[in-house]
Amino acid sequence: MASCYSNNCPVDNMVTCNYYFYNSEGTSISYAPAITVSAILPGGRNVYVYRKIGEETVTADKRMQELIDFGYSETIRYQRNDTILINKASGKQYLEVPMSYFNPADTLLFTYSNISNPDTVYVEHDNFSHVDLPECGSFSYHYIKSIRATDNAIDHIEIVNPTVNYDKAENIKIYFYDVESDE
């Protein structure tokens, strides 16, 4: 994190893409179920899963020959790297989600507490290094080019303001199915 000693530097200088929630009719809502937002990171790894009837399932990062010798079945699964950006936020009207500094696109996983299937949101964006004042350090600004999402809980999604900076403006509108407004 860049140091800052000037009074003119912004106090809240976290650059986030702001997702605001609406129902299908376009009314602003507070989304009651807990939402967890994860970012799919580039790369992944093989995960080894060993199962045997009457025994506990074993998951390992490397092959375990001795479990196969004991009669376990082996399943190799490729697991992509991910990280949780927002953990179980409920009753929120909007979420502030960070964007990657250098990747051309972010894949976000919206997991809901009331629905088994998550939604995947895919955001394409350009990235810009931004310096307000030399003493305030550097930031990464973004310009959203396109967005798309699956439709498990999301009716549709749209870009409101493509410029992502630390002004906390509304960037993206998410319209959810079957959610009544607060009024």
Binding site: T83, S100, Y101
Partner: peptide, 8 residues
Amino acid sequence: QTDPIWKT
């Protein structure tokens, strides 16, 4: 610049 989340 280093991305604290995507580690790039």
